[in-house]
Design a protein around this nucleic acid. Structure first.
Length: 718
DNA sequence: CTCTACGAATTTTTT
DNA sequence: ATTCGTAGAG
């Protein structure tokens, strides 16, 4: 019983959390306050001091990365392998439950997990089948709607049409989508969660079993849970409140995808006796950075309330740079990076954070030109690449012939003379007789409903899949993958394809074989499943884990969202402009604006020592020149914490008439104005000179208008 | 079936 | 600007 090892490294608040009594506990963990440490030490405490069996521990995270880190830190601390513990993501654990109890959850044992791209394809195909116009019923929107319903725990049969034709149609699509998935044995991400919830809800014996088994349930990033996830947690801990949750209401940035910050408040309501522990001592950032973060987040309402502090000193001031345009901004950032590296700093300590991915390019170009290695996060993941998905579709078809999505994907790739009209016949037969595309193809061949030539092609395809399945039997996983990649002629197809980076794609296919070789099914211990099943689930659920070449010393580029949970010595928070950050779509809605502000808080608190903010007075966006105002968040930082940076006057002056519009002096961009007829407004754009000078004004009452300055009686306001 | 052309959209992202 | 998807021609 090595209690000291568990307790000694903790501060008082952390210790209170780790040693809290077994009931419901809410740990409000500020950024950089040792959240993961508390979680890990809590579990270790339960096992080594409270005598809990490792078997009885459940720990749930959102990302595979977090799950992995928790497991490995736990192994370090306990000094033993942590197989026995159920540590995983919501989706991973749900998947595990559904596999174990496939029949009882109403799924075929061969069911496959779809990622969101697969899901979108299913919906698009469905729209075709239903004869709905894609322009009027955008597949993306329907996908969003269906997922939102599922995240909220609503099934199609529970939905109400409200006697509204639009709602009725949505409902019909949702219902049809459920049918298709059920028939094809396909499960999307939201479905994993919803079904896992229903499984426990509807089977008392299973619920009893798992309630009995999981004596302590731990949840990371609780503020990000959605309705179904919380409902599932409540089921598991019903009546006992053996739920230890860690979260931060100020870092809730996923409301737009169903996360319910309210779950924190519900938790407190549902568990009146809960322990509340606030972790406010920060071990990451300087005092200055924390003061800025506290000030900004203080503008939000309805917070539980928390103030970060540190024992470390104030450190250097926050730098602020006003760029002329986005190129100048990138130039400035790269100069600072160069100086940092020249002073002996390492590149991997630097992050450039932005609101949207589109902003990365300018920085990439300047970094490239300066020969500074960098890495952009959030690009296309390995398992998301088209050629990889195609190869996986072949594999899924081997496992499950009713997988229509995979069927559609590979039936004519590489091209084997199965054209659109042939496929239409197959789809028609499938619809008519409620068959899978595979079964429908067999029927079509039998009844010779297509030309002899097409029939032959179809027959060849069915034979190919059957033969592959036959030959794959008994082979090692990587040999199976290799077999499929080669015999499907996919590899040769891409090797021949000179035009579309075919060579690269062929290499990726070989890389897939390699990934299969390295795949360790033991890590995903689920005895009853074949290695191939596990590999396919891994590809769908853990696609992110492939890109782990962080060995090189690179500057890190990523969105604010992907920066959550990370820290860097030097952070550049760029594009601090109204309309960009906060994003245009959020400014009209108080709730969404607060989420943007939390995002800003997340960004600021990523910085350990240095924080540099920048905005641009002019920016090319969607091919148009815009003149945004500085972000409101900049004004929310106390000025005495900020040091505005000015480059030497002669270095980066823009040429007259180039980039920056000359101002008449009286009206600047962003200037608040008043018009006697239109009321109050803000200047958005300006062009022309002298008598021709006109300005674009956004009026509160009447919207955006162009006005000739010579005629319009505009007065400055405020 | 493949290639070109035109039009529309365009935060954030994990699973 | 750029990307992406569809429609129409070759």
């Amino acid at each position: 019983m090595d209690i000291t090892k568990i307790i000694t490294p903790l501060n008082a608040a952390q210790r209170a959390a780790v040693t809290a009594p077994p009931g419901a506990t809410l740990v409000l963990a500020g950024a950089g306050s040792g959240k993961t440490r508390v979680l890990v030490h809590r579990i270790a405490w339960q096992i080594q001091v409270a005598g809990l069996s490792p078997h009885a521990v459940l720990a749930v995270t959102f990302t595979n990365k977090a799950a992995k880190e928790m497991r490995s830190r736990l192994e370090d601390l306990l000094n033993l392998p942590a197989h026995a513990l159920w540590i995983g993501t919501f989706h991973g654990l749900a998947h595990r439950l559904l596999r174990r109890h496939a029949e009882r959850s109403g799924l075929p044992s061969t069911f496959q997990v779809m990622d969101s791209a697969d899901q979108l394809r299913v919906i698009k195909r469905l729209l075709n089948t239903l004869g709905l116009d894609e322009a009027q019923w955008p597949a993306k929107q329907l996908q969003w709607h269906i997922n939102a319903q599922k995240d909220a725990g609503v099934r199609a049969r529970q939905g109400s049409d409200g006697n509204d034709p639009y709602q009725r149609q949505l409902l019909a699509v949702y219902r049809a989508y459920e049918n298709i998935c059920q028939r094809s044995g396909l499960v999307d991400f939201a479905e994993l969660l919803l079904r896992a919830h229903e499984l426990l809800r509807d089977h008392q014996d299973l619920l009893d079993f798992y309630q009995q088994r999981f004596q302590q349930v731990h949840v990371d990033e609780f503020q990000d849970t959605n309705t179904v996830q919380y409902a599932w947690l409540r089921l598991l801990t019903e009546g006992r409140g053996n739920l230890f949750v860690v979260g931060d209401d100020d870092q809730s940035i996923y409301g737009w995808r169903g996360a319910k910050i309210e779950n924190i408040h519900l938790f407190r309501k549902h568990h009146p006796d809960h322990q509340l522990v606030k972790l406010e001592q920060n071990y990451r950032s300087t005092g200055t950075i924390l003061k800025a973060a506290n000030a900004v987040i203080g503008f939000n309402s309805g917070r539980i309330g928390k103030e970060l502090w540190t024992q470390t000193g104030d450190g250097e001031a926050i730098a602020l740079y006003a760029a002329f345009n986005e190129l100048d901004e990138a130039y400035f950032v790269v100069e600072r990076i160069r100086a940092w590296v020249a002073a002996g700093g390492s590149r991997s300590d630097i992050a450039i954070l932005y609101r949207s991915n589109a902003q990365s390019r300018q920085f990439e170009e300047k970094l490239m030109a300066s020969h500074i290695p960098y890495r952009v996060y959030g690009g296309l993941r390995f398992f998301d690449r088209a050629e990889i998905k195609t190869a996986l579709a072949y594999l899924r078809l081997l496992v499950n012939r009713t997988d229509d999505t995979s069927f559609e994907r590979v039936v004519n790739l590489p091209t084997r003379g199965i054209g659109a009209s042939t496929l239409e016949t197959v789809r028609h037969v499938a619809r008519e007789h409620q068959l899978s595309l595979w079964a429908a193809t067999e029927t079509v061949i039998q009844q010779t409903r297509v030309s002899a030539r097409a029939g032959q092609a179809l027959k060849r395809f069915l034979n190919l899949i059957n033969q592959l399945a036959e030959q794959a039997r008994g082979l090692e996983l990587f040999e199976q993958v290799k077999l499929v990649v080669e015999k499907s002629a996919l590899l040769a197809f891409y090797q021949q394809d000179k035009a579309d980076r075919g060579e690269e794609k062929a290499e990726n296919l070989e890389e897939l074989v390699n990934a299969a070789k390295l795949f360790d099914p033991y890590q995903n211990n689920e005895e009853s499943l074949s290695e191939l099943d596990l590999f396919l689930a891994y590809a769908a659920l853990e696609a992110g884990e492939m890109q782990a070449d962080d060995a090189a010393d690179c500057v890190q580029l990523m969105t604010l969202h992907s920066a959550k949970g990370l820290e860097f010595k030097q952070v550049f928070l760029v594009g601090m402009e109204e309309g960009l950050f906060p994003s245009q779509q959020s400014v009209d809605d108080a709730g969404r604006l607060e989420e943007e502000r939390r995002l800003c808080y997340v960004g600021i608190t990523r910085a350990m020592r240095g924080l540099c903010l920048s905005y641009s007075e002019s920016r090319r966006l969607y091919g148009r020149e815009t003149h945004p105002r500085p972000s409101r968040f900049l004004k929310e930082i106390p000025p005495h914490l900020v040091q505005e940076v000015r480059l030497r006057a002669n270095t980066r002056r823009p040429l007259p008439g180039f980039g920056v519009v000359q101002s008449s002096g009286q009206f600047k961009l962003g200037q608040r104005v008043r018009h006697e007829k239109f009321g109050k407004g803000v200047i958005l754009q300006q062009e022309g000179e002298g008598a021709q000078e006109r300005v674009q004004v956004s009026f509160q009452q009447v919207g955006v208008k162009w006005l000739m300055l010579a005629y319009a009686k505009l007065a400055t306001d405020g």
